[in-house]
Design a protein around this nucleic acid. Sequence first.
DNA 1: CTAGTTGCAAAGAGTTTGCATGGCG
DNA 2: CGCCATGCAAACTCTTTGCAACTAG
Lengths: 146, 146
Amino acid sequence: MRGEYSTKQKTLILNYIKENSAHLTVADIVSGLELQGVHIGKATVYRTLERLCESGEARKFIVDERSGACYQYADSGCERHFHLKCIRCGRLIHLSCDFLSGMEEHIFHDHGFKVSSGKTVIYGVCSHCSGNEDMDSHQCECHSSR
Amino acid sequence: MRGEYSTKQKTLILNYIKENSAHLTVADIVSGLELQGVHIGKATVYRTLERLCESGEARKFIVDERSGACYQYADSGCERHFHLKCIRCGRLIHLSCDFLSGMEEHIFHDHGFKVSSGKTVIYGVCSHCSGNEDMDSHQCECHSSR
DNA sequence: CTAGTTGCAAAGAGTTTGCATGGCG
DNA sequence: CGCCATGCAAACTCTTTGCAACTAG
């Protein structure tokens, strides 16, 4: 019996992340709505996003544990393919190709692990970001320091 | 002129993560050393690990923002392996196999995306838990973290 | 001796929780 | 009206920082 109400706040939050395709932190959402004259407590935003993630309407990313989790609107087709998240620009890339489907098969058959591609996010640097920056000065991977 | 001292604490921490192939949180390291009768302040552990990551002797990754970052001794191609996280029991599985290295290559060459395998965690259900496949409401007994 | 390191505790940042009030159905 | 959701603030957790004492080179 999952009686879930559809409240004003939930609608506002969902619309906000729907209209802002970039990844948003909880703070972004709170202050963004504030600019529109809407005040929603951050606890509510956390709790609402949690429910939206459970229902698959939103997706959560952890790019850097320091700056907090990011959320993004997730449309319905996202269950079947992988997501690549650029740790530079925050862009989310939907990637569905046969190779990755094969990978899923491989992991399942050879390692006994049933991959949930909808939940999995592959982190890295997108072509846009890696091309526009000089390769020597950035260590995108092995440096979590800052 | 980066004179970096080689202190007793740094050696102890490095040895500890070297001998424990598992992923360790800062708390794990502090309490693990405590059991050996060695006391090192956690601030020191954080600072030392940061330096070890910079020098490439350790690496850091984030599985779940709630439980904190994990550190691991960096050797034997650890940059090349992925982590599988069971969404049922919370177990973390190291997966290094040629297929996945191939996947990384594929994503880079065909999609222009430089994968950061250290930051990436593949979610799904491990072989231990998949005996009772029932994604929404079931929980198997192998609960570990949190 | 000098500069890097350690330890402790306090400060930060992000997230969660307790509890009373308010709103959906 | 019952139950879920909201808001606020306090509580929590992990991590960082300030500062005095300490130590490797």
